[in-house]
């Protein structure tokens, strides 16, 4: 996967200050204070990174930065790359596994995504494909007319020994202004990771098992 400059937002990484205050208030020994303060002055994760950058996807870095909401997720699917690429290339199929996408209408390279927002509202994103490497990678970006600013990539890599395909998705969005914007910001801020994780799991179910699992007993529940 490509290294991405924007970091996960909303992640609560190690925050030394409350710990410091707590220990000080409790009047604990200086040794403890020194220990708690260590990340502030000493061997911070950022400094350690300069010595050796590990091989985990950059989006998982413990360092906090960046403003747009950002989601990255990887899933191993027991199907060949081409099959997954073909399905994903057909944006109109998104509503089958993406919970918040109500409908997608495709016109050539531009497509319009109707996205469910809180309080029964919907917003639309107008999106164009900016990179299309057959069976390998798709990248898209919102057009200037879009209500939401968004971009994303999805990469398909062979897993070893016939174990299928690693699918890596990166999606980034800046909510619009105004009331609707705030509602959407809320929606995305609430659970962007959960949403992406669930969507990709449903994609995997659909590709492997041919249907999205549910424990509903009656159709009325849907």
């Amino acid at each position: 996967m490509s290294r991405h400059p924007i970091e996960v937002r909303g992640y609560r990484g190690p925050d030394p200050l409350p710990r410091l205050a707590l220990f000080a208030a409790a009047g604990t020994a200086i040794a403890l204070l020194a220990f708690a303060a260590k990340p502030l002055f000493g061997n911070s994760p950022a400094q350690r990174r300069r010595e050796l950058e590990d091989d985990a996807p950059r989006r998982l870095s413990r360092e906090r930065a960046g403003s747009p909401a950002f989601v990255g997720k990887s899933v191993l699917i027991n199907r060949p790359r081409a099959e997954l690429y073909d399905f994903w290339r057909d944006f109109e199929l998104f509503p089958q596994f993406m919970e918040n996408i109500r409908a997608v209408e495709v016109n050539g390279d531009v497509s319009t995504w109707t996205i469910a927002a809180p309080a029964g509202q919907t917003v639309t994103a107008e999106v164009e494909v900016v990179e299309d490497l057959r069976n390998e990678r798709l990248a898209w970006k919102s057009t200037p007319q879009s209500q939401i600013e968004t971009k994303g990539t999805i990469d398909f890599r062979d897993a070893p020994a016939g174990r299928g395909t690693y699918v890596d998705a990166l999606i980034e969005y800046k909510p619009p202004g105004g009331a609707v914007g705030r509602a959407i910001a809320d929606l995305f801020r609430r659970e962007p990771h959960v949403q992406a994780r669930h969507d990709l799991k449903r994609f995997k179910m659909l590709m492997e098992a041919g249907e999205v699992s549910t424990s509903w007993r009656t159709r009325r529940q849907s």
Binding site: L76, N78, G164, H198, E208, A209, V212, S213
Partner: peptide
């Protein structure tokens, strides 16, 4: 599901797809 990595390895109770995503 009978189709995922685990089902194909006959580790059926570890199936990746039966438990709904949510």
């Amino acid at each position: 599901c009978g189709k995922c990595y685990f089902c194909e390895k006959q580790q059926f109770s570890a199936c990746d797809n039966a438990n709904p995503a949510e």
